[in-house]
Structures are given as C-alpha cells and as structure tokens.
Computed example of a mutant assay.
Amino acid sequence: MLSNNGPPLDDDAPPWGRNGIGHWFEWGAAIKAAYDTPYAIAVMRARRAQALGLTYEEYTLEILERGRHLNEGDAERIAAIKRRRPLRY
C-alpha cells in the first residue's frame, strides 16, 4: 500500500508517524492552510452546512476533496457523508 505521508494509522506509532517529525508539521500546516478562509466565506459555509445538516468541517472537506459546493440536490452524497460519521453513545 502506498503512503501519502499523512498522520499514522497504527496505534503503536508516535503521533508524528514513522517518517520523521517534519511530515507531522507539514500536515499541520496544510490543514491550517486549507481551513484558513476569510470570515465571510467561513460564515457562508457554516450556514450552508447547517442547512444541509452537515458540520462545517464535513462541508469544507467536501469542497476541498471534490471542488464543488453541495446543495439540496445532492441528497445521496449528503447521506453518504452522514453515514461516515462515528457512532455516538
């Protein structure tokens, strides 16, 4: 399996993984840059996400991954995102 040098998935690995601590900082910077948006855009995304029943993070991640904004016509995709949520007890 190929690695994208992201955070480790193994429980026995240190938080920064086996590829050196530099990748940990690079991923942290990339995540910060992806979510570092102007206030007006963040508010717009939060309102759209709430209207669709998604979290801000889920909505923004969909924009970053697929390059498009979700709307009411994307009910199947929204349902798939909601199914991926972890179970809450």
Rank of each mutant, 00 (worst) to 15 (best):
A13N: 13
Y39R: 06
W27I: 11
S3C: 15
G67F: 05
L70V: 07
T37G: 00
W24E: 01
A29S: 08
A80S: 12
P8E: 10
L54S: 08
A13G: 07
P38A: 00
V43Y: 00
L52K: 07
I81W: 05
R48W: 04
E62C: 09
P7L: 15
G17E: 04
P8A: 12
R45W: 06
L2M: 12
H69D: 07
R84C: 09
R85S: 10
D11V: 11
E65Y: 06
Y89A: 15
N19D: 12
A46K: 05
W27G: 08
T37Q: 03
L52F: 09
W16E: 07
E57K: 10
T37K: 02
F25R: 03
Y39C: 02
L61G: 10
D10F: 11
F25N: 01
L9I: 15
Q50P: 01
R66H: 15
E62N: 11
H23T: 07
T37A: 01
H23W: 13
I81H: 09
G17N: 09
A42R: 08
A30G: 01
P15D: 11
A51T: 03
Y35T: 06
W24P: 00
P38W: 01
L54C: 09
R18L: 12
E76Q: 12
W16V: 03
D74K: 09
A40C: 00
Y89F: 15
I78G: 09
P15T: 02
G17S: 15
N19I: 01
R77L: 12
E57W: 05
W24A: 04
D12I: 07
D12K: 13
P7Y: 14
G6V: 02
E72W: 04
L2E: 13
I21V: 10
P38T: 01
Y39I: 00
S3K: 13
A40K: 00
A75F: 12
K82R: 15
G6I: 04
L9C: 11
R77I: 11
V43I: 08
R68E: 12
D11Q: 14
A51Q: 13
N4K: 15
E72V: 10
I21F: 05
P86I: 13
R83M: 08
R18F: 11
Y39A: 00
